[in-house]
Deep mutational scan, measured.
Amino acid sequence: CFKERTRHLLREWYLQDPYPNPSKKRELAQATGLTPTQVGNWFKNRRQRDR
């Protein structure tokens, strides 16, 4: 489970761009302490949920 702060950051970025490029994923991974793969999976799952 991700911390509330991490989820908030991910949601904020998702609203700006639901399809982040690899450099954005790396930047967000550094900001949250997650791996770029975890960030990518979160975005993928969130896009699925929004369908």
Rank of each mutant, 00 (worst) to 15 (best):
Q30M: 13
R46W: 07
N45H: 12
Q38P: 01
N41T: 10
L15M: 14
T32D: 04
F43W: 01
W13S: 14
R46P: 06
Q30G: 09
K24M: 11
G33I: 01
R5I: 11
K44D: 06
K24T: 13
K25E: 13
T32F: 00
D50H: 05
T37A: 13
N41F: 02
L34A: 01
A31C: 09
E27P: 02
R7Q: 14
P18W: 07
R7E: 15
H8S: 15
Q48A: 09
Q38H: 01
L34H: 01
E27M: 04
D50F: 06
K3I: 11
K25C: 14
H8G: 12
F43D: 03
N41P: 00
F2G: 13
L28R: 03
P36E: 14
G33L: 04
E4V: 07
Y14Q: 01
R49F: 10
L10I: 01
H8W: 12
E12C: 10
G33S: 06
S23R: 02
A29E: 02
R46H: 04
F43P: 01
L34N: 02
W13L: 10
F43E: 02
E4P: 04
D17N: 09
K24Q: 14
Q48G: 10
E4L: 10
P18M: 09
C1K: 08
V39P: 00
L28M: 13
Y19H: 08
A31W: 07
T6L: 12
E12A: 07
R49P: 03
R26N: 14
P36C: 06
T6N: 07
Q30F: 10
Q30D: 13
C1S: 14
R11M: 13
T37Q: 14
W42P: 00
R47I: 00
Q16T: 10
P20F: 04
V39W: 01
A31K: 08
G33N: 07
N41C: 11
A31T: 13
E4A: 05
S23N: 11
G33P: 02
R11K: 14
W42I: 00
D50N: 04
A31Y: 08
P36A: 10
R26P: 02
R5T: 15
N21V: 10
R11C: 09
G40Q: 10
S23K: 06
T35D: 05
E12M: 10
R7N: 11
S23A: 13
W13C: 13
L9A: 08
R7P: 08
H8V: 14
T37Y: 10
W42Y: 01
H8R: 15
L15S: 13
A29I: 04
Q16Y: 12
N41L: 09
R46D: 04
T32M: 05
F43G: 06
F43H: 02
R51D: 10
F43A: 00
P18S: 07
Y14L: 05
Q48F: 06
R26H: 12
R5A: 08
N45V: 05
N41D: 13
L28V: 08
T32R: 03
D17R: 01
P22D: 15
L9F: 10
R51Y: 13
E12I: 10
R5C: 12
R51E: 12
P20Q: 03
T6I: 15
W13T: 11
Q16S: 12
T37F: 09
T37K: 15
T32H: 02
Y19E: 08
A29Q: 06
V39T: 00
P22A: 12
F2E: 14
R47N: 05
K24Y: 04
Q48V: 09
K3N: 11
D17S: 04
N21K: 08
P18T: 01
T32L: 08
E12D: 12
R49S: 09
Y19V: 05
V39L: 03
K24R: 12
Q38F: 04
Q16V: 12
Y14H: 00
A29M: 03
A31V: 11
S23F: 10
N21W: 02
V39I: 12
Q30T: 13
T35F: 03
E12F: 07
H8C: 13
E12P: 00
P22F: 10
T37G: 11
D50K: 07
L28F: 07
R7T: 13
Q30N: 08
N21S: 12
Y19M: 09
T32Q: 00
W13R: 05
L34C: 03
L9E: 03
N45Y: 03
T35K: 06
K44F: 07
Q16A: 13
F43K: 01
L34I: 05
F2M: 15
E4Y: 13
W42Q: 04
Q38Y: 03
A29H: 01
A31H: 06
Y14T: 00
L15Y: 11
D50P: 02
Q30E: 11
A31L: 14
F43Y: 00
Q48M: 11
T35Y: 00
R47S: 02
L10A: 00
Q16G: 07
Q48S: 12
H8N: 14
R26T: 07
W13Y: 09
W42L: 03
H8Y: 14
P20M: 02
P20R: 00
Y19W: 14
W13M: 12
G33D: 05
F2V: 10
R46S: 11
E12H: 07
Q48W: 12
Q30A: 10
A29S: 13
P22I: 05
E4M: 11
V39G: 00
R47H: 03
R7S: 12
R7M: 14
K44N: 14
R49W: 06
R49N: 09
D17V: 01
Y19G: 02
K24I: 13
N45E: 10
P20W: 00
R5G: 14
P22G: 14
H8I: 15
G33V: 03
R46N: 13
E27K: 04
L15F: 05
V39Q: 07
T32W: 02
P18F: 00
R47Q: 06
K3T: 15
D17C: 03
W42G: 02
T35A: 02
R5S: 15
T6A: 13
P22V: 04
A29F: 00
L9H: 05
W13N: 15
G33M: 06
T37N: 11
L10H: 02
L34K: 04
K44C: 08
T35E: 08
L9M: 10
L34F: 04
Q16W: 04
N21R: 07
G40M: 06
N45S: 08
E4I: 09
Y19R: 11
T35P: 02
D50E: 10
V39Y: 05
T32E: 06
E12T: 09
D17E: 05
L34T: 05
K24W: 06
G40W: 07
S23C: 07
P20G: 01
L10Q: 05
R47T: 02
L28E: 03
P22K: 02
Q16C: 07
S23W: 06
N45W: 06
P20D: 00
Y19Q: 08
A29W: 01
L15T: 12
P20I: 07
S23E: 15
K44Y: 05
Y14K: 04
T6R: 09
P36Q: 10
L10N: 04
G40A: 13
D17A: 00
R49M: 07
G33R: 04
R47W: 07
S23Q: 13
Q38G: 04
N41R: 15
P36Y: 15
R5N: 12
